[in-house]
Amino acid sequence: MIVVVVIAGLLMAAGAVGALWRIIRGPSALDRIIASDVLVATAMCAIGAEMAINRHTDTLPVLLGLALFGIVGSVSVARFLASRDDT
């Protein structure tokens, strides 16, 4: 079981570092939004993994909150980046 924790932790850390790298280097703001969305999704997966492994569901509402907030950020920034706003 500890092997699963170590492998999953390393994989998620690498994914988060990749997203962070794209946030820092991203040429355009859109790259940064998408990378931050991936970072939020990775954080949600990490919280869920910790919940599944330790067999408790105390932080399940956190997942719900993150699921909603992660999207609001990217939608609002994408909304104001589009040059022609016909919405």
Partner: peptide
């Protein structure tokens, strides 16, 4: 799930 997150990180780069 961890593989998916890793694939996302690599894909973003």
């Amino acid at each position: 799930s961890a593989l998916m997150c890793f694939a996302a990180g690599v894909g973003l780069i």
